[in-house]
């Protein structure tokens, strides 16, 4: 079961805000989905190697050759708040 604390914790990690009705709803829905996922625990997976890539590739490189960057105006064009050629954000509280 996914608790309210779990939802709060995960929401915080994911930088999402949840109000109290969402808290209930998400806790319920995540519990139901994970309940279905728990089917996996029927399997004995001790000797199975995990798959993270289905494609059997390795060592895909690019050469160390600079390519033109985008124009600064273009880089900034989509920025919600831009100042002095940079992206502006509210103050960063000390981490």
């Amino acid at each position: 079961m996914v608790s309210h604390d779990d939802v709060n914790y995960v929401a915080k990690l994911a930088r999402l805000k949840v109000d109290s009705t969402e808290l209930d709803r998400f806790a319920g829905q995540l519990s139901s989905i994970l309940g279905h996922v728990d089917k996996i625990s029927e399997l004995d997976l001790a000797d199975v190697t995990p798959t993270s890539h289905v494609i059997k590739l390795s060592n895909v490189f690019r050469e160390d050759a600079p390519r033109p960057s985008v124009e600064r105006d273009e880089a900034l064009a989509n920025g919600p708040d831009v100042e002095r050629g940079a992206f502006k954000v509210p103050p960063i509280l000390e981490a």
Binding site: R15, K17, P80, V89, L93
Partner: peptide
């Protein structure tokens, strides 16, 4: 995350609040 492109909600006093 509202920094480089896309939607940014106002009202965030600090960057974490802005993200959320």
């Amino acid at each position: 995350d509202g920094v480089r492109y896309g939607f940014r909600a106002g009202g965030g006093d600090d960057v974490t609040a802005m993200y959320e």
